[in-house]
Design a protein around this nucleic acid. Structure first.
Ligand SMILES: [Zn+2]
Ligand SMILES: [Zn+2]
Ligand SMILES: [Zn+2]
Ligand SMILES: [Zn+2]
Lengths: 138, 138
DNA sequence: ATAATTCCTATAGTCACTAGAGCTTCAAGA
DNA sequence: TCTTGAAGCTCTAGTGACTATAGGAATTAT
């Protein structure tokens, strides 16, 4: 049986975050010691590692909750789990597209001015004042 | 003199957001009508357009506040403004790098499973359970 | 004049945590 | 066994950039 601190060290998830995941229903309410401290077993360690990895991959809490629910029905088809992952991938790709547009505009703006001007003449300030100077929507 | 609603329509910034920007010190406190409603002039329209464009480019509120402050000293050198833009560009690039790593892993994971399995065999679930199956840190 | 619309302030909610206050329990050494 | 320091507990509030709602007042249109 692990204390919350040992669980934290083994998974790299901070103690308050573990308590937060319990509150959010990702971890089941832990057993308690006589003095009301949380005690964890191996299965909790595995579940927390799952949560952590899913978070590291950018999945949000409702998605993880659903994935955990699905993972408890080992004989069901995995279409829903695959769909969640695919939708997340699509969302990541959209974010990348959007950031690449920002990157292009910002790169253009930044390279038009080298800091050696007055504010009055600064291309950064002018470009921010006027989206018409931009080359794309963003 | 424009009402907050007309200012909103002309800039595409929602009414509560305009009030929020005032609270955050991006817009100066507007003049008021006899009945205490905000009244704006052309210069407010321009400043709000600046704020909006800067937000669309991903700059955060403290950065925009600083840029506005700088833009009021038209004879000063623009090095600080250029630095703010360059730092933001660097931050955007870092985000892109991180998201590309996520994209790679997610793409690999998703393409390993086509939904035609049981949860028990599902590669999505297994990959989430074990970062060791990943090809990179992310 | 009346009705419809817009405006006002103030408060709370979003997301995934993080920080702090104030208190209790645990583990280890003397 | 006693003491001390670390770690645990609950609860509340703060983060960023808004958004939503409530309850009321002002403005505009008919
Ligand atoms: Zn410049
Ligand atoms: Zn633009
Ligand atoms: Zn699958
Ligand atoms: Zn991984």
């Amino acid at each position: 049986m692990l204390s919350i601190g040992s669980l934290s060290k083994r998974t790299g998830v901070k103690v308050p975050t573990i308590r937060y995941y319990e509150q959010m229903g990702l971890l089941k309410a832990a057993e308690r010691s006589e003095g009301n401290q949380r005690r964890y077993e191996r299965s909790d360690l595995e579940r927390l590692a799952f949560i952590r990895h899913a978070r590291d991959l950018g999945l949000d809490i409702p998605a993880i909750r659903e994935l955990i629910r699905l993972s408890e029905h080992s004989q069901q088809p995995c279409a829903d789990a695959d769909r969640i992952a695919a939708e997340h991938l699509a969302a990541v790709r959209e974010k990348i597209v959007r950031l690449r547009k920002l990157e292009q505009e910002l790169d253009r703006i930044v390279s038009h001015c080298d800091g050696g001007h007055s504010i009055e003449e600064c291309y950064v300030i002018r470009a921010l004042s006027d989206h018409g100077l931009c080359e794309s929507e963003h």
